[in-house]
Write a protein that binds this DNA or RNA. Structure first.
Lengths: 140, 140
DNA sequence: TTACCTGCAAACTGTTTGCCGCTGT
DNA sequence: ACAGCGGCAAACAGTTTGCAGGTAA
């Protein structure tokens, strides 16, 4: 079922703005902020309001088309849900971001499930710490 | 070395406000928001400004006396650094919070260290997912 | 036609900052 | 005495909301 039909099935419509948000997410390979998306769209369509972007991200998330991730700040990052799932490492010292295969996180997810009945979404929040470069520097 | 001396060693002073923030953190066993702390202090000391609480949390964090954790919202939660011996699970459905021993997270931390040179602080961000109760309900 | 959706402006929340007089040491 | 510190008010960033007119189906 295409996105138009899925939207329609939920009583929603496909609008120019909604399509632009989807396209922007498609083009941006990784986690982008709502503001990034708004800025990119507004470069060519200045009349589109940031609030529309927020509303559409929320709507598309409800439909399961997009998801968000929390990094080490107050800004929500968005990406297409179908994009390859991965964990995020973010360095609290230099801010560098790195992706790790979701499989690396699976053993922990399994233990949380088995021992606590908790179905963890380990891709939802970035893992904060000190990256290799920064820890080399500080230990020299 | 006591906290007064450590403050002094860093060119800082012990003030009434600083002591109140520390006491509030002591009394609150777990993660509390800056606003929680401000509210509690202001109940008895209404003249103390929330911004003072923020400034003191930051100062005390620099000294290593307190740390903060990110849950699944935009609010920072604080606790005494020495009390930080656990990870946090937070349910995205009902909001329930649960603590898990830090040891549970250690195998992942070790792999990240060995395979990526990344020194992860797995207590810094809560692990988001669906708790046991919510997943039982939704699967019935 | 009729919900849904949008742009606009304004509100809101959590947090930070500038100013300037106060206070710990 | 003199940095550091605190109160106050204002700024700030990211995000949400109310409204009234516009638009997909």
């Amino acid at each position: 079922m295409g996105i138009d039909e899925r939207l329609h099935a939920s009583g929603m419509r496909m609008t120019v703005q909604r399509r632009l948000v989807l396209e922007a997410l498609q083009r941006a390979r990784h986690h982008v902020t709502a503001d990034d998306i708004a800025t990119r769209i507004r470069a060519r369509h200045p009349q589109i309001d940031p609030s529309t972007v927020y509303r559409n991200l929320e709507a598309l998330e409800e439909l399961g088309y997009v998801t968000h991730t929390h990094f080490d700040d107050r800004v929500t990052r968005w990406h297409r849900a179908e994009a390859e799932r991965h964990g995020h490492l973010v360095c609290r010292s230099c801010g560098a971001e790195q992706e790790v295969p979701i499989g690396l996180l699976e053993p922990l997810a399994r233990r949380l499930r088995e021992e606590h009945g908790f179905r963890a979404d380990l891709a939802h929040s970035a893992i904060v710490g000190i990256c290799k470069d920064c820890s080399t520097v500080s230990s020299e």
